[in-house]
Design a binder for these strands. Structure first.
Lengths: 249, 249
DNA sequence: GCCTTATGTTGATCTGCGTCAAAGCCCGGC
DNA sequence: GCCGGGCTTTGACGCAGATCAACATAAGGC
């Protein structure tokens, strides 16, 4: 699985990804020490809600393993996913005490958490934590904006191709494969319904477009979830992305 | 106009909004001094491009007056707006030297700028600048996510109502009007085409839906741009927002 | 005044995707 | 083994919004 792997890519800082990936990019020992003292782990099962929108949010943290989704719903039930959380992604917002979105574990999830107020204290005392968080937030903002183009202007087929590209790319970087020229293989971490919520489509349309891409030889499917992309550039072409595309999360 | 007004709401820090709004929320004198020494102003005319996507970006800054748009285009011309920049909004990304989006002045715009590298130096020396920037970026991220729900799940009519609510609300806060119970009046700062690019629609659909909202008495129009909202809660209802809605930029 | 250009409105028609419905596949429980 | 429930696929049909097109309005420039 892609999840465990990400832990081992930079083990120099120990086993908690927030130490080297999310917060402590430079790994100075003082902050590590202090972070270490206030951190704790939480586990969630696939399908379980991690946070409900509107809930009191008394912790921040990062995903250690597994996949979670961030989403927003209207009263009548229409739902839009607004974030996809993969290992090393940060959850929660310093300075806000109620959650703005629903967070749901898609697979089993382990999170590395910090109670909010000690974390905030630490942040004010440790400048580069805020800087690192700023960097990460700017990346997320770029991803959200890329996603807005997908939602607002792409056709269903392009949306599916875009999503597949994103997953393939994130999977590749998590697994530290370079931009391999050969076929790319991965498992879809989302149900058709979750993909629909991601892309602003219905699950039927998602299913139909995946079938169409398969029929046209853009992808191959084994079972419902295992995908092979024989030619990545062809897929990116279908996505309507210019050349090597954006940096969507 | 809404623009000039925003300058005078917090004059205690002088005439540059970046000092009190964008960067120096707490107005400590040292940083003010240093910021003062490296800042400069730039003016742009309505319709003029401020930045082209892919350009070298050698400054960061904030909007002093006027309105600008952030947008993204596909090769075939399809365009999606991904940000609306109003006075006090920050532009540019510390740590990145090429622009990711097109920035266009919608009205005449004045920006308060800082060359990027001195600004970055200053940021590393002045912790709370990074913290303030983080706060602003998180707000933008929330806005982008709210917007994703609009793009992905709302009908054309709801999209228009959402946009009108957002503009009404921002206009109200910029002008320091409280949540007045009476009718709300404002000018649309965007053409029909720009609204379409914002909402992922065509300009014809925008025009039709505005006409429909007018026919149904949700809004009144004088000329093409001057809008009166007799009952704000009615408009928000049309937007599909729950109660007092989100905090879209 | 008239001509041009940018902007907005409205109508007629087409189509991509949503909606409703039925059925297939796979896994876990009994 | 059989049954039930979650997930997925596929079909038939309708509609919201795109597309194509004509025209209206307003602002400059001369």
């Amino acid at each position: 699985m892609l999840n465990e792997r990400s832990l081992s890519v930079a083990p120099d800082c120990g086993d908690c990804p927030i130490r080297h990936r999310a917060v402590c990019a430079r790994c100075e020992s003082d902050e590590l020490e202090r972070l270490e003292q206030i951190k704790y782990y939480r586990k969630f099962e696939a399908g379980q809600s991690i946070i409900w929108a509107g809930d009191r949010m008394d912790f921040v943290g990062s995903v250690v393993s597994g996949i979670a989704t961030l989403s927003q719903a209207m009263e009548d039930g229409r739902t839009q996913m607004v974030g996809l959380l993969l290992p090393s992604d940060f959850v929660g917002r310093p300075g806000r005490n109620t959650a703005a979105y629903d967070v749901v574990a898609t697979t089993d999830v382990v999170m590395c958490c910090f109670r909010r107020s000690p974390f905030e204290d630490l942040m004010t005392r440790t400048p580069h934590i805020a800087q690192r968080l700023l960097e990460m937030t700017l990346d997320e903002l770029d991803a959200a904006r890329e996603w807005m183009l997908v939602l607002g202007r792409k056709t269903a087929r392009e949306k599916i191709a875009s999503l597949l590209s994103i997953i393939a790319r994130r999977d590749a970087t998590l697994n530290k494969r370079g931009a391999a020229a050969g076929p790319i293989v991965f498992d879809l971490p989302l149900t058709r319904e979750a993909m629909a919520d991601y892309l602003g489509l219905t699950l039927e349309t998602v299913s139909r477009q995946i079938s169409a891409l398969k029929k046209d030889g853009v992808i191959h499917l084994e079972g419902k979830r295992h995908v092979t992309v024989p030619d990545m550039s062809r897929l990116m072409d279908e996505a309507g992305d210019d050349a090597d595309g954006g940096l969507l999360v």
